[in-house]
Amino acid sequence: MSKNIDDLKNISSQVRRDIVRMVHQVQSGHPGGSLGCTDFLVYLFFNLMKRKDSFDMNGLNEDVFFLSNGHISPVFYSVLSRAGYFDKSELSTFRKLNSRLQGHPATHEGLPGIRVASGSLGQGLSVAVGSALAKKLNKEDNVVYVLMGDGELQEGQIWEAMMYAAHNKVDNIIATIDFNGQQIDGPVDEINSLIDLKDKLESFGWKVYESDGNDFDSLSSTLEKARKNLFNGFPIINIMKTVMGKGVDFMENSHKWHGIPPNDEQLNDALSQNKETLGDY
């Protein structure tokens, strides 16, 4: 049953608490992109995807999701747990020895919800397109979702996959780009600019939508529109503007919080900005 916007906001608030607590606890991990993509992943898992309650690797007859920018694992783990794939208590094992919650997502330890390892950038779109091809062979009408970073688009393999999907009319996929404009070393525009990304994607044969990834109304209307355009002979992509560090004021809009954890004081500040709604892990 789909959730209303207040429900979604409450889930996001809890997920943001999970993220900052997880990275604070082990003093490592990537809070910036995780916070920025929180609302998208919450919307995806709680309202958009047609998914089964339990997890099986093949994901037959359900929508599946791939996280290509695997470094934002904190948000992925939190959302998977809050969506019921595993108990929230396991979030406390993030990045620790013998954990299923590896620094970057992996299938190796058997964590439900993960279908491929990611972290080395640029690979997820290819895997998602392959999964979409399998769905076509299986005559499923389900959808494959994939999230990539904007800096990640500097990887050449992304563009191989872009060409392939358009040429082969892979039209059961909705890719999303986390367009926060930041990467580790600085703003994307200073490191290696994407110039006119929308034009680029359109010229590669994709149907392009644009959304505000930190606004549920925008996410809802854009992704619903996108869904209505599935199975029309072209792949679909959503350029999703987000604020890196969204929801924690001192982290917002700065690449500096890409991969560093908050200290004790900063944690308390961050938690005071995101209320506990579903119970901390």
């Binding site: 690797m57 093949n58 994901g59 037959l60 599946v64 791939f66 279908r115 491929v116 640029g122 690979q123 997820g124 779109l125 290819s126 895997v127 998602a128 397109v129 392959g130 999964s131 979409a132 091809l133 399998a134 769905k135 062979l137 299986n138 050449g156 393999q157 191989e160 996959a161 060409m163 392939y164 040429h167 082969n168």
Partner: peptide, 25 residues
């Protein structure tokens, strides 16, 4: 229908192959 010509793009080919296994291929 079970043959995929990927062009000169081997990295993508490996990713597509990984994805195809998800779905039992």
């Amino acid at each position: 229908e079970r043959f995929f010509q990927v062009g000169i793009a081997e990295a993508n080919m490996m990713g597509l192959a990984a994805g195809l296994t998800i779905g039992g291929k």
